[in-house]
Design a binder for these strands. Structure first.
Lengths: 223, 223
DNA sequence: CCAAAAGTGTTAAGGCTACACCCATGC
DNA sequence: GCATGGGTGTAGCCTTAACACTTTTGG
């Protein structure tokens, strides 16, 4: 159906997904161990080619699902940059629309998918060597995540429905990769009015913490 | 060379360019009158298919040059979003990497290019009806431009090498589509230290204005 | 001298940072 | 009672917004 100039048809279109979660207080990114050349036995972001009848974000979700056998839906999915440099893929001209995904807390266990040997979570700020230009893509994804933290309240997407303020602060600290002042953090977050106390408390070691949930009418942020 | 799943080869890759300049105090966007179906006789952003050996930004520059016979190089060129919704182009699945370009002041005269009937500058905030999803693309380009104004100093790219503070303020006002306080504007801009007085003055009606140029070591911003 | 545009300071309010101690619970 | 983590207030600084008159030139 598609009438294009003959040179144009040889450009392949792919998506890659930088998927994040917080585990044990550190920001982690989902990586797959490639089973095929090029870059067999190398860790890479989940990703692959876009199919004809498929929206870009659907392709991103499909790759996430199929390559990692992950069951949960991302809480946030956002396209953030398209990488198209010549030579970024040895197979030829492949342009990749990179996506940023946030998976809720507790999404830790993952298994290998169809075309991958393993899938696992790695510290996002210290990833292993990555295939293609995926180190660049991951770096840009982290920057975007940090930006989004400011004026979307993306941090909530990392947490379960109810959470404590120290937990929320840990999410911010893990993403920004630095520590924050407790009092200033609480002041700022509570002033935004996006949290409502659930009335419950969470017990553990030390003084129990007040539980919060996101206030009504706070956007959920999926694309 | 390219071994892809058979479904993937049918996705066409294009670029579109939202090119801006300031003329007579208003932000204007460069549009082309399409000569071919689909959307013949409709205004559209300059754009077209990416060729195999071509970087994305090269494709954007080529389309800008060929479709509008514009001679000057953009001062700023930046990819800002990739539009890929199914049905956005009646010819089939075409994904477009949208770019934002800034052309310096004085770039006004344009002529038709190869595949277009006309090319001309239109008020960016009130464009004519546009082909495909180009109204959406233009709207997002304007938002990005406004964002960039804040913490890149993109406004300088709209002006010639030397310029007056009121001229610079006009650029900001045209992009933001609202007026700014003169004193606060001057204070803020001068405090940034990105301007140096050239010593010269510009005469016209009223009191002559001090001319400035960009300070040494202010990034030029092309990509 | 008049029109037209350039240039100039102060004040008030809000937001951000730094900083140290008490509180509630489990063991 | 002690260890552990949760919770609280203030003061200084800086940034931002609001606001009106004087200066310099050309005609």
């Amino acid at each position: 159906m598609l009438k294009l100039p003959p040179q144009a048809t040889q450009v392949g279109l792919a998506v890659d997904v930088a998927a994040f979660t917080i585990h044990e207080g550190v920001l982690r990114s989902l990586l797959t161990l490639r089973g095929r050349v090029p870059h067999a036995q190398t860790w890479a972001l989940p990703g692959g080619f876009v199919l004809v009848g498929e929206e870009l974000h659907e392709a991103a979700l499909r790759e996430l699902r199929d390559e990692t056998s992950i069951e949960l839906e991302p809480r946030h999915l956002e396209q953030f940059f398209t990488f198209g440099a010549i030579g970024r893929d040895p197979r030829g001209r492949i342009v990749s629309v990179a996506h940023l995904a946030v998976l809720p807390h507790g999404t830790v266990p993952v298994m290998a998918g169809a075309s991958t040997l393993h899938a696992d979570w790695f510290p996002a700020h210290q990833p292993p060597p990555l295939a293609f230009d995926h180190a660049l893509i991951l770096g840009r994804a982290i920057k975007r995540l940090q930006l989004r933290l400011e004026y979307a309240n993306l941090a909530l997407d990392f947490l379960p429905e109810t959470f404590t303020l120290p937990e929320l602060q840990n999410v911010h600290e893990a993403i920004l990769n630095r520590s924050l002042d407790k009092r200033n953090f609480r002041k700022r977050l509570l002033a935004q009015g996006i949290l409502t106390p659930s009335g419950e408390r969470r017990s553990g070691v030390g003084r129990p913490a007040q539980l919060y949930r996101r206030a009504r009418s706070v956007r959920t942020g999926l694309l």
